[in-house]
Amino acid sequence: MAKLREADLYAPIKAFLEAQGYEVKGEVAGADVVAMRADDPDPVIVELKLGMNLTLVQQGIARQGISDFVYLAVPALRGRKALAGHVGLCRRLGLGFMTVRARDGFVEVHCDPAPYAPRGARGRKGRLLREFQRRVGDPNVGGVNRVTIMTAYRQDAQRCAAYLAEAGPSKGAVVARATSVPRATTIMRDDHYGWFERVEKGVYALTPKGAEALAPE
């Protein structure tokens, strides 16, 4: 099978737009595809690329100075996550997004150009603010990957572990008061890190793994 070229996207998109009553021409004043219809003074502009990238997005944004109806077009994508990400980006930028299936030229429009109307993500915002407020200090370096992130939850668990290391097996309520960690009992009961074990009802002790986690690196 011959390697796909950007030009291979043109014919399917031209046919798709012509079926909707547009007159279509390629490479007009730098735009890959321009379509006009007698009843609409604004052109439809489509920019073509073999993959979604910054250059394509920049081209689309530049074309918005000419028309409100700008689409980005790439070959059909395999992963739903990638597709959702591209569609979300285009919606935020007021761009349309379409894909072309190479084997048969099927064109699918995933979103049309429209002003972006953001929906507030109150749940995510609340989690972010709570994490920021609960976290002590700034224990992480921004931009790092594949390292353990020190969350407020982990900091609370460390305080509980440190108390047990010094005081020995203790009731959850006692640990909560001594460490100022209101959720101490829940943290030790859930034991996400394998640091705690229940020795009797309501009483928790530190495991060897917990002691190891407290050891200085």
Rank of each mutant, 00 (worst) to 15 (best):
I149H: 09
L89F: 05
R122N: 06
R119A: 08
A157R: 08
T99F: 01
Y71R: 03
L72T: 01
L128I: 12
D112T: 13
A102V: 15
A117F: 06
A102C: 04
A165R: 12
V141T: 15
G88T: 02
H110Y: 12
K81H: 12
V175C: 07
V174C: 00
V107G: 07
A82G: 05
N145W: 13
P118V: 09
P118N: 06
V109C: 08
V144M: 15
G79A: 14
D138K: 13
G126S: 12
Y116Q: 04
V144T: 15
R134L: 15
R91A: 03
A73K: 01
P113F: 11
G120C: 06
Y116H: 14
G88H: 01
K171T: 00
M98F: 03
V141Q: 13
R154S: 06
A152I: 09
H110F: 14
G96R: 07
L129C: 00
L128Y: 13
H86I: 14
A102I: 11
T99S: 01
L89D: 09
A152S: 15
H110G: 09
A82S: 13
R78E: 13
S170P: 07
N145T: 13
G94M: 04
A121C: 01
L72F: 04
K81Y: 10
V107C: 06
Y153A: 14
L83G: 00
E166S: 09
D112R: 15
R134M: 12
M98Q: 02
A76S: 13
R135H: 05
T151R: 07
L93T: 08
T99G: 00
T148S: 02
V144S: 13
D156Q: 15
C111V: 12
L72M: 05
L128P: 00
D112A: 15
P139F: 10
G142C: 03
A73V: 02
A173S: 14
L93Y: 11
R101Y: 04
A162R: 14
G123P: 00
R134Q: 15
Y163C: 07
R119I: 10
L128H: 09
V87K: 04
Y71A: 02
L164D: 02
A157G: 06
K125N: 09
A73T: 04
K171F: 11
A76I: 00
R146E: 13
C160M: 05
V74L: 01
R130E: 11
A173R: 10
R159I: 01
K171C: 01
V74I: 11
A162P: 07
A161R: 02
L77N: 02
R122C: 06
V87I: 14
A173D: 11
G143C: 06
V87N: 06
Q158Y: 13
L129I: 13
L77H: 05
G126I: 01
P75L: 02
K171Q: 10
R159S: 11
R122Q: 07
H110E: 06
P118E: 05
I149E: 09
R91C: 09
A76P: 05
D156A: 13
Y71H: 09
H86C: 03
R80G: 12
A176V: 00
R101G: 01
L129S: 08
K81L: 14
A117R: 15
C111M: 08
Y153T: 15
G137T: 09
A73M: 03
A121R: 12
G137F: 08
L93P: 15
R80H: 10
R119F: 02
L89Q: 12
A152M: 07
V100A: 02
R91Y: 02
P113R: 08
V109R: 14
A176Y: 00
G168F: 04
L164S: 01
A167E: 09
